[in-house]
Design a protein around this nucleic acid. Structure first.
Lengths: 222, 222
DNA sequence: TTAAAAAGTTAGACTATTCTAACAAATTAA
DNA sequence: TTAATTTGTTAGAATAGTCTAACTTTTTAA
């Protein structure tokens, strides 16, 4: 097991190395508000633990093991944020610091219950993906249904709102997460969209509803 | 601010010194699974911080400041337990270890929201009192309504269940927290009780309901 | 009432984190 | 391409918590 401190290092390394695959001691030190020599010795420790690959004067990279751990922490953080907002009705602005603490709670049950209560969300309301319990991230490109081009077919991946009334509305329309829909027509006037659904029925959604639905394009026009 | 470790010491000192007002190094060491010399040096530190009063070879006592801190930790722990059970629907047996971690979360909002969501509970379902945010504990002697002697008048202080259906039932009977009731008669056969209510009406409750209502005796027969 | 037993204390050591000071390597810019 | 700048590393120290070994006080009980 990693200490709370180690977890924070791992999380930051993941975030900072996302783009290029590596981070430098100086960047990490700045991000964590810690002096370079401290980062340096922590890297030696994490290297011993096989969490990072680290050679002196070279960049820091997470190993597979390290990535897995990072994703697990990120999952806990994002689930916690979503939980605090959706279930506890706290404001987005006040939620980050609390999630920063909750992410270190060691209890599978605690997180699996959150997951259940939130209906296994794939994204947090910022649109950031929540890794699943195997560390798998939904990487497919998502678009809001309100931006999908006419004629394209896409799968409903997630909804931006988890409120019962919204879900009820989708239900009433016969839509569910996982359903494939084809965008038949978008009204230029009000942005409402007409969908072709697997049920063969045509479904009309207002712009307000469409923009809260995230889809993944599965087929393009050939 | 106290460290997580210090908070754990304070909580244990409070619990162990409740009866006599003091704890001994050996007891504390056993409770925390820590060796005596470690406890000894921590006591020196907490004494410097004015959290405990401690003289070598004498017992350990919390100062007023220390008691306040202990009550705040206990409040957080009990709120968290209740929250995990009532809101997150986890089982009582699996909740303690998680609450043990949540109690150290530093966020007033987090706890005040729990408090609100739980309707400002005065007791956890074990019947243990939850200190309020000023550290005040509801010390009055409580009895279950199912144990109240015939003829006594008492005030409804809390209910052991927070489920909507239970609260609805009480509502339908015209009972609310804070109401004074006099126990008119208890049926020996099924334990159901007849109450005299301030509304002048007589109310009949089954044993099942009565045992979930906590009351404080306000008047005794003279 | 004195000798075990129990309880408490000191001293010294070790790990996890962090820091400052001083030096070394790599990069950048003139 | 060398000198300045940036980046990284080592060495040594500090704090929080804990431990073991070796006493010292108190208590308990014969």
């Amino acid at each position: 097991m990693d200490s709370l401190t180690e977890e924070n290092y791992i999380k930051s390394i993941y975030a900072l190395s996302l783009a290029t695959g590596e981070v430098f001691v100086s960047e990490l030190a700045k991000k964590l508000n810690i002096k370079q020599p401290s980062v340096n010795s922590m890297m030696k420790r994490l290297a011993t633990k096989k969490v990072v690959a680290y050679a002196p004067y070279k960049g820091i990279r997470l190993t597979e093991k390290g990535k897995k751990e990072a994703l697990s922490i990120i999952r806990r953080h994002r689930l916690a944020e979503l939980f605090l907002v959706k279930v506890m009705e706290l404001g987005w602005e006040e939620v980050h610091d609390i999630a920063e603490q909750l992410e270190h709670v060691d209890s599978k049950r605690f997180y699996s219950r959150m997951d259940e209560m939130l209906h296994f969300p794939k994204f947090d309301p910022h649109g950031e993906p929540i890794p699943d319990s195997n560390g798998k991230i939904y990487t497919q490109k998502r678009t809001s249904l309100s931006d999908l081009a006419e004629g394209l077919t896409a799968t409903i991946a997630a909804v931006g709102e988890d409120e019962k009334s919204f879900l009820d509305h989708l239900n009433a329309k016969g839509l569910q997460i996982g359903d494939a829909v084809t965008l038949k027509k978008r009204e230029p006037f009000d942005g409402s969209v007409t969908l072709q659904h697997k049920s063969k029925k045509e479904i009309l959604l207002t712009h307000q509803v469409a923009e809260r639905i995230w889809v993944e394009v599965t087929f393009t026009r050939s």
